[in-house]
Nucleic acid binder design. Structure first.
Length: 420
RNA sequence: GGAAGGAUGGCUGAGCGGUUGAAAGCACCGGUCUUGAAAACCGGCAAAGGGGCAACUCUUUCCUGGGUUCGAAUCCCAGUCCUUCCGCCA
């Protein structure tokens, strides 16, 4: 949601921001509506004021004057109703426009229509070399008998998988390792959030109203969360917190459900793109001064996981056309997958500034003034894709998987995952 | 699924149809005191929006939407949400 005051004061900046997103200018339309609304508002307020003053003298009047007054107030009331009808129409038009426009890109963000304009910020680790041809994760998993796409297809359809046996344990180990690190080393509070949310929450983080097609809905009109960002950020839905309690940092390991409506035909093999996957999410709530440095901090929390796993990756600064709806600046972390021979997204860390907070009405008290909090979210990391990365990077020639050192404490006495 | 109760400021919680934007307490901010802090005491403290260069002023808001009334936090209707009890159940 955009700040109407900002648009009033900086219509050109606003349109420029939209242009960076490859959208048509909107400030003129918005300001025209705003002007019209304020004009009507002033009129209706004057009438209200008049009515109030008339009513105040009511008890001192004689019966005849009372009757006159009643008639007069009735007329005023009709006029007020008319004005207010028009006002509420304009209001809903304004809201429709403002709530469907994406956040404006930060000045750092490169301008470009798609991922081709993303900028590589850093590369960590060398691309590993193998003395044999590395396999993709789905071949490794199926040959181990621990990824079962066929039966999942029968039971649930495409884009589902059974993860079995030691790979299931490995996935749990990965998630636990991430959670332990984020809570113990980085000060995030662990949360087990609701996995079903209402409209208001999905609206608050920006999934609604535009992206309902990407979500699953229950017959109770709940939405299945597409990411824990939704329930974690909405911890602040309709609240006011004290400035000194910020920043607040939360992490959760949850399943994520996505309809993948627009992804037909993409990544159909393997578990890169599933309707259900698990993810460890990071969410930070800060005041308006601290959000930029918090984004850098969050990025480091996420990349440290890959550093510890000793898997190479690159960090991308997303271009204006590749960013999500609510973000003003986003870093993607892309991990090297030897089986595919390319980097694939494993995390996305975004600063949404006050964009979500406005939708959620999430504020903090600062110098006796209420301001909107800044919200940030990032994957720390996508657990399913981390499993893929471990499989492909730690594969051996015989198809077995060596367990990374940092995961050994979570794997019992399993050091190598191999076929029985 | 059955029954009952409730929704008021950041929180708790008062509120005969007419200066009630709303008592009180807590929290918060400023001050006095103190070596410092705490305590105590004094003062301040809802939000959103309109008009005005400004001091200021006006309007709206007591869950939402309708209605009754000259006038609604207060009365009526509908809806949403929450709580409690019973039943079922992990």
């Amino acid at each position: 949601m955009h700040d109407l005051n900002f648009i009033r004061e900086n219509p050109n900046l606003f349109d420029l921001g939209l242009k960076k997103r490859f959208l048509e200018p909107q400030s003129q339309i918005i300001l025209d509506l705003d002007l019209k609304k304020r004009d009507l508002l002033t009129k209706s307020q004057d009438l209200r004021s008049e009515r109030k003053n008339l009513s105040a003298s009511f008890s001192q009047l004689n019966d005849e004057d009372k009757a006159v007054l009643q008639k007069k107030v009735q007329d005023i009331k009709n006029d007020i109703d008319q004005y207010e009808n028009e006002i509420s129409k304009i209001d809903s038009q304004l809201k429709d426009i403002l709530s469907s426009l994406p956040n404006l890109p930060h000045a750092d963000v490169p301008i470009g229509e798609d991922e081709k304009s993303n900028i590589i910020i850093k590369k960590m680790g060398n691309i590993p070399t193998f003395s044999f041809k590395p396999k993709p994760h789905y071949e490794l998993g199926e040959e181990l008998g621990m990824l079962d796409f066929d039966q999942a297809g029968k039971v649930s359809g495409t884009r589902f998988v059974y993860v079995k046996n030691h790979l299931a344990r490995l996935e749990r180990a990965i998630a636990n390792f991430m959670l332990d690190k984020h809570t113990s080393d980085f000060g995030y509070m662990e949360i087990i959030p609701p996995n079903l949310v209402r409209d208001a929450a999905a609206y608050g983080t920006g999934q609604l109203p535009k992206f309902s097609d990407d979500l699953f809905k229950t017959n109770t009109d709940h939405w299945l969360i597409p990411t824990a960002e939704v329930p974690l950020t909405n911890l602040f839905l309709d609240t006011i917190v004290l400035d000194k309690t910020l920043p607040q940092r939360y992490t959760a390991w949850t399943p994520c459900y996505r309809s993948e409506a627009g992804a037909a035909g993409r990544d159909t093999r393997g578990m890169i793109r599933q309707h259900q996957f698990s993810k460890v999410e990071l969410v930070s709530i800060t005041n308006e001064e601290d959000s930029e440095k918090e984004l850098e901090r969050m990025l480091n929390c996420a990349t440290s996981i890959l550093d510890d796993l000793k898997i190479s990756y690159q960090v991308m600064l997303l271009s204006s056309g590749d960013m999500g709806f609510s973000a003003e600046k986003t870093y993607d972390i892309e991990v090297w997958l030897p089986g595919e021979g390319k980097y694939r997204e494993i995390s996305s860390c975004s600063n949404c500034r006050s964009f979500q907070a406005r939708r959620m009405n999430a504020r903090y008290k600062s110098d006796e003034q209420n301001k909107f909090v800044h919200t940030l979210n990032g994957s720390g990391l996508a657990v399913g894709r981390t499993l893929i990365a471990v499989l492909e990077n730690y594969q051996n020639e015989d198809g077995s998987i060596t367990v990374p050192d940092v995961l050994l404490p979570y794997m019992g006495d399993i050091k190598v995952i191999k076929k029985f």
